[in-house]
């Protein structure tokens, strides 16, 4: 018998393309969430591949906390323009202004949790029946149990103890009115797979992922970038270091890594040698042992 194999990156690619096409086929009004981070960038390039030469048949949506790295916003706008993709931007600031969300107080204040309000409001307002996200199962242990097609009730909540079985490649997007799905096309990718794929496909990345000089300070062992809305505690000192981002999220809770990695190959070598997970620098996960599960149940990404 004639046998053929593809490498692990091509197999992951094939799986993700299959899932993204299922979304386009099974849902009436899907949207793809875009954060400007490497996972959502890879997910978007997979979507382009899935439908080429047609355009991606759904819009992208960014839930903007207003606390961004500048580079993220310019990358986002550039990407939408160059690929002719519709980019919806919803602002956490609007949710705060209209009283739907309340700003956290104190030095560790973050708008990370508030994004859920803005996201659920946008899904309801724009009648999206499916929101694709770049979540990966290897990121965090609550995510390790997430389905590709993850059902959300009419309040946008996730019931992790009562998930629908998911077998073979048969994905069930059936739902009642008012409910929606979260779909995670790159569930089975690891941080390493994502970087290797970016290299293999030469996907353009925001400069934040490569080494650069930035004013940073150290809090609880994690390096954070300074920003006008960040308050330094007594004893914390802003200094300029050579750093790069391992993840890109809200600036208030995205730890940066001291790094000299200047090429994709050097990043891959750094990831291979790393002894701390990429979310090790995420202050949002450190709030409690079940911080991610609690946020996800409420409707977080």
């Amino acid at each position: 018998m004639e046998l053929h194999t593809i490498n692990h990156l091509r197999e992951l690619e094939a799986e993700s393309i299959f899932v993204i096409r299922e979304v386009a086929a099974q849902f009436e009004n899907p949207v793809m969430l875009f954060s400007g981070g490497k996972d959502s960038i890879v997910m978007f390039f997979l979507a382009r591949k899935a439908f080429f030469p047609a355009k991606v048949p759904f819009p992208l949506m960014h839930i903007d906390t207003g606390h961004n790295f500048e580079e993220t916003i310019s990358y986002r706008d550039d990407l939408a323009e160059k690929t002719g993709t519709k980019m919806i931007v919803k602002y956490v600031q609007d949710s705060i202004d209209n009283g739907r969300a309340v700003e956290e107080k104190g030095v560790n204040a973050s708008r990370n949790v508030l994004q859920t309000v803005t996201l659920l409001d946008a899904i309801e307002e724009m009648k999206f029946d499916c929101a694709m996200g770049g979540g990966r199962r290897d990121e965090e242990k609550a995510r390790a149990k997430e389905r590709f097609f993850s059902h959300r009730d009419e309040f946008g909540q996730w019931d992790p103890k009562n998930q629908r079985p998911e077998l073979w490649n048969l994905f069930n997007g059936k739902k009642h009115i008012g409910e929606h799905f979260r779909v995670f096309p790159i569930s089975n990718w690891t941080e390493m797979d994502v970087w290797q794929y970016i290299l293999m496909e030469n996907i353009p990345m925001p400069s934040l992922y490569f080494t650069h000089e930035r004013e940073v300070f150290c809090r609880d062992g994690v390096w954070l970038a300074t920003a006008p809305f960040m308050q330094l505690k007594p004893g914390e000192k802003a200094e300029v270091k050579r750093i790069r981002c391992r993840t890109i999220g809200d600036i208030t809770c995205t730890g940066v890594a001291l790094s000299e990695a200047n090429t994709l190959e050097e990043i891959i070598q750094e990831v291979a040698a790393s002894r701390v997970t990429e979310r090790g620098g995420r202050a949002d996960d450190k709030r409690s042992e079940a911080a991610m599960e609690d946020r996800k149940k409420e409707g977080y990404f």
């Binding site: 353009p204 400069s207 490569f210 090429t263 994709l264």
Partner: peptide, 12 residues
């Protein structure tokens, strides 16, 4: 978008 910096090593 910026262009990637690639050292030009092969996949192998």
């Amino acid at each position: 978008m910026i262009d990637n910096k690639i050292a030009g090593l092969s996949g192998k």
